[in-house]
Design a protein around this nucleic acid. Structure first.
Lengths: 150, 150
DNA sequence: GGCATATTGATAACTATTATCATTATGTCA
DNA sequence: TGACATAATGATAATAGTTATCAATATGCC
């Protein structure tokens, strides 16, 4: 299974914030996971924050970032960073790997996967002597809805 | 030909800084282009700045950013933004499209392309009703050099 | 050479994200 | 149940990368 890997940010956390094992139960972290599990996914941290505030008024943005990092660490949430450099989050866990189609007009995300592409990527990596550990594929264009409008 | 497209940043420039037509000649802009043309490519703005200072002492970082934006606008330079969110620049123009293999250990970039993958991406986009305008593919793993060390 | 204006450098501002730190909540153990 | 160790939290400062602002300078044209 291919995992999407993000390059390390400039200032990585010094220690694991949460391994979701020795952690205590936290109602806010649960609320944040619930936002992603029940929502449409592909939310930025700010959007997650807004949605979480409806369930848990007063929740701080720092808590959201910490919770997302924690939830990513144990696989319950997936983070991916498109070319605007702003991290997006989606529920992980049972969800299979997929790539993203991104609409250049409305900014919406569509999930898609092509096993053939996955296979060829591995081949391309091998051809260059790379031991592949992950990949990131984004396809840009007009979504059907926006294409119709033009 | 497929062009790599970056999502718009949060604070896009209000106007085109330079269309490389009505522009005046600028020795610094030329120096910056020269850095990329003669160097290894895949440089961050900061790295370009450092290299440019050797040729043009006192050149400011703002000038580097402006010049890069200008040079990207007219195709002489290509910008791509990997998952650390930090823009990298490489000479454009005559260079054909390519994807990137990125080493998770040393951070080096390798250029690669597979026509088959390109074709399948177009097919995948079409399958989802997308009018494709570009894509971005990054493959992460250990480069041959780093793989050998382990 | 002089003029209109494009370009520049210093620096403030901005966005997304992480670190800090005092306060609060949680779980455990007596 | 109550006390205690410590994980989690919120406010906010700090950081990195990038863009905007603005006065000073450079460029091209007459």
């Amino acid at each position: 299974m291919i995992i999407v890997i993000n390059m390390p940010r400039k200032t990585p956390p010094h220690k694991k914030v949460c391994d979701c094992q020795g952690s205590r139960r936290s109602r806010r972290r649960e609320a944040i996971l619930d936002v992603l599990s029940s929502g449409e996914g592909h939310l930025s941290a700010e959007q997650v924050h807004k949605a979480a505030q409806k369930r848990m008024p007063g929740i701080g943005i720092a808590t959201v970032y910490r919770a997302l990092k924690c939830l990513c660490g144990c696989g319950k949430v997936l983070e991916f960073i498109p070319s605007d450099g702003v991290a997006r989050y989606e529920p992980g866990g049972d969800k299979p790997h997929h790539d993203h189609l991104i609409c250049t007009a409305c900014g919406c995300f569509t999930e898609a996967v092509d096993p053939e592409i996955e296979r060829l990527q591995a081949r391309l990596a091998a051809k260059h002597g790379y031991a592949i550990s992950g990949h990131r594929l984004e396809i840009y264009g007009l979504c059907p809805c926006c294409a119709k409008k033009k």
